[in-house]
Design a protein around this nucleic acid. Sequence first.
DNA 1: ATGTTCGATTTGAACGATCAAACTATCGAA
DNA 2: TTCGATAGTTTGATCGTTCAAATCGAACAT
Lengths: 334, 334
Amino acid sequence: MSRPTLQSLAAELSLSRQTISNALNRPEVVRPDTLERVLAAIESSGYRPSALGKALRSQRSHTIGLRLRPVVDGINGAVLDRFLHALTEAAQAHGYRVTLFTADTLEEEIDRFEDLYRVSSIDACALIETFVDDPRPELLAKIGIPTVAFGRPWGSTTSTHHWVDIDGLAGTRAAATWFRESGHTRIGYLGWPAGSGLGDDRRAGWRAACHDLPGADDLDLSFEDGMAEGFAGAGTLLARGATAVVCGSDSLAIGAMSEFRIAFPEAHPLPVVGYDDTPVAAALGLSSVHQPVEEAAQHCVRVLMSLLAGEPDAQPRELLLTPTLVKRAFTPML
Amino acid sequence: MSRPTLQSLAAELSLSRQTISNALNRPEVVRPDTLERVLAAIESSGYRPSALGKALRSQRSHTIGLRLRPVVDGINGAVLDRFLHALTEAAQAHGYRVTLFTADTLEEEIDRFEDLYRVSSIDACALIETFVDDPRPELLAKIGIPTVAFGRPWGSTTSTHHWVDIDGLAGTRAAATWFRESGHTRIGYLGWPAGSGLGDDRRAGWRAACHDLPGADDLDLSFEDGMAEGFAGAGTLLARGATAVVCGSDSLAIGAMSEFRIAFPEAHPLPVVGYDDTPVAAALGLSSVHQPVEEAAQHCVRVLMSLLAGEPDAQPRELLLTPTLVKRAFTPML
DNA sequence: ATGTTCGATTTGAACGATCAAACTATCGAA
DNA sequence: TTCGATAGTTTGATCGTTCAAATCGAACAT
């Protein structure tokens, strides 16, 4: 009644463990008629080789660890949601699984990673939400855990770990350029306060496209993330004569949108662009910068696979993907 | 250089594996001075018992499997996000981990669960998003996998599996009752079309509180989920004289909110209640029904632990938790 | 007839842990 | 002195797999 094993199958067929094992892993060394007999028995018994046995023998748990962040924001959380899904899917395609854990602090996260690794529960780990001078990649490297980060090393870190990121600068630059090409000359920016890496990068994209426009500096505003903040910021921008606005997040953009729609009721699409292309943005008809998160996740898995195969240079250490601008017709609703 | 094992530690101390093992698991059978010596060695070597070795021996992977749904909606997805986090945390407290997988179809989900279980990758599974006549609990029970569902068995199923759910009826009833007590007599309902279990339950709560009000039936509208739909629905309700509205989701409520705010600019809080208490609702100052998701997740883990301990009746087979109504002052923004 | 070679299969050992049983001193009682 | 009980420790077997080496039988060459 209990699940069949190599041993039990072997006994049933009057063969040895190894022959059964070979039938699955190296069929060419097994005599054809034996092979057929074995495969038939495997089929009918529903035998599946134990992942635990394999793991113990190979010292590979085929598992990638990931710290699940506490839920902060339902809007921007959607990107990490997509990443988690894509990572799971990509890992699955390589016979790997994603295991989650939670941690309250950074130290605890590292400890937990180390512990999971040391007890052979995970083979590798994925980092998300990297920040300025993030010490984690280096700490994990010191421990010796194969690691990949979704998010580049912001700040002055001179680390050499593997990472994938999405070129935020290119995204906001594309948005601002779109507005310029449409004839706008007063294009505002609404983003997070300086110092966040991610936010600075996005702001730099707008600046790259607009720095030569007269009075551009007056149209660069910083706010914490949130719809209310976007609403307020848009008000200021409109008062200063802005006719379009690029935002560092969809939250800000949604807020800005409701101000702009009053100022430019006829505009289609509305001269507001968000960032992340969240489902809410799509629902509201907000143009937004779409991040190729699935590609990023796939690359993360590729990197980890090559690290685990002992070929750290099989994949580029750094990969910067380009986002795309999704132009939407505003859905007149709010 | 490689990680220490019972064997290597034993050799180093001129003791046997078992004594090291006993020092950790049954310290009372080890002579005090030996114990001290062993613990010191464990400490200094940084030995951690291999989860793989333990798992193979005990035939327990200490892992709970969960299918990660494709991201559908950034707003309502937040509830499942919270659940995932809470489940991971609760499992962690019991020495268990949560492993994810993806599947495109229902059949694939079951197959994947079965496979993971058969290869000993998971000990148990958690189901989310149960639907009318959901066959999964029964199928998994037939396979013999310890299972708990977050979501009751909707429809005519007479299943006897373990589940936890949140009393949607109580939530919307509380919302509608709140309006009645505030003097409203024309309270509308905006929810999903009949047939979704979850949606029907929530609608029933409003009905329970309002069925005796004249003309209540005219104020009961069905829409697919979405902000635009909520906006449209609210328009109809206002035209029919509604002065307050209970919604089956925050998406609908956000849409409804922007209509109601024009009709009742002075109302504080705004006479709109959403469902799920998502971060967006909180940011907008939308009153909403808060689900005790963390408690639900904790109960899920408790159930699985008792199932794995062979005590299926240690926990109630069915648990219905009561949500709470969060009353918010509307943030005048949109 | 004897040794060589090769294909097919089996055996032993290992991965790292724990249960169960066996062993070895040490002590007290007969 | 001898036996039994007891505390402390060791050995063997097991969980399910795979690598490496050994074995077996048959075909072939000398």
